[in-house]
């Protein structure tokens, strides 16, 4: 039984590593590859949960994660980058070094918090929950510190990965929730995609500044 938890904790740790790695990529292609890798790790983690906890319906979630997030969305985003001729580099607001330092601080906050708050709970799931929270916070950090629309989409979905990890770690979460989460990611992608094309058609640029120009905020 302890083996099962160690493996799932290992996979969650790898996902956290992928989140950190997302934060220090310089190229959009590398960002998308790393995200795909994180999605593969997620599907493995969810699949492992399904196997060890004998909850076969979690395989559906694992398959959704693998198919949608590891393959379809990264491919779609890469084609978008190619077709629109976006800059291949990642436009940063905060430098890689400081981003990583903030990320470390957030991770330690997550660990500290979850371990303290859940001190009385079952000991095996606590670390998993802490790692999931750290992934969520790092996804937020990525959305804040990276400027281009593609990196914001990726940050959002990596945040979503953390959520699904936390949801599958907890027992008794019904499947309905997971499917709806997966669909919400897809819908978000569609919305973002439409936005991106629309912005490109009108303003020939996919910086968030273009959205601000649409709203007429900054002259």
């Amino acid at each position: 039984m302890t083996h099962a938890y160690e493996v799932s904790r290992f996979l969650a740790g790898l996902m956290l590593l992928a989140s950190f790695s997302l934060l220090c990529q310089d190229r959009l292609a590398a960002v998308l590859n790393t995200f795909a890798a994180q999605a593969v790790l997620l599907s493995m983690a969810v699949g492992w949960e399904a196997w060890t906890q004998d909850r076969p319906h979690l395989f559906i979630t694992a398959a959704l994660a693998l198919g949608l997030k590891a393959i379809i969305i990264p491919v779609a985003l890469r084609r978008m980058v190619d077709r629109l001729g976006l800059t291949r580099g990642v436009d940063k607001v905060v430098g890689v070094g400081s981003t990583l330092m903030i990320g470390l601080a957030l991770t330690s906050l997550a660990l500290l918090l979850v371990l303290r708050v859940t001190a009385s709970a079952e000991s095996f799931t606590r670390e998993g929950l802490a790692l999931a929270l750290a992934i969520v916070l790092l996804g937020l950090l990525m959305m804040i510190t990276r400027r281009s629309v593609v990196t914001q989409i990726v940050g959002f979905m990596s945040l979503e990965n953390g959520l699904i990890l936390a949801a599958t770690g907890a027992r008794g979460m019904p499947l309905v929730v997971e499917i709806s989460v997966a669909f919400s990611v897809l819908i978000a992608l569609l919305v973002f995609g439409v936005f991106v094309f629309d912005i490109h058609d009108r303003f020939e640029g996919v910086g968030v500044e273009a959205i601000e120009r649409v709203r007429g905020d900054r002259e």
Binding site: L109, A110, I144
Partner: peptide, 20 residues
């Protein structure tokens, strides 16, 4: 009328403050 990133920053700031 702030840029989107500032709203995200405020939201995560609030979240982190609550976590603290």
């Amino acid at each position: 009328s702030l840029p989107m990133r500032d709203y995200l920053l405020m939201m995560s700031g609030a979240l982190i403050a609550l976590l603290l």
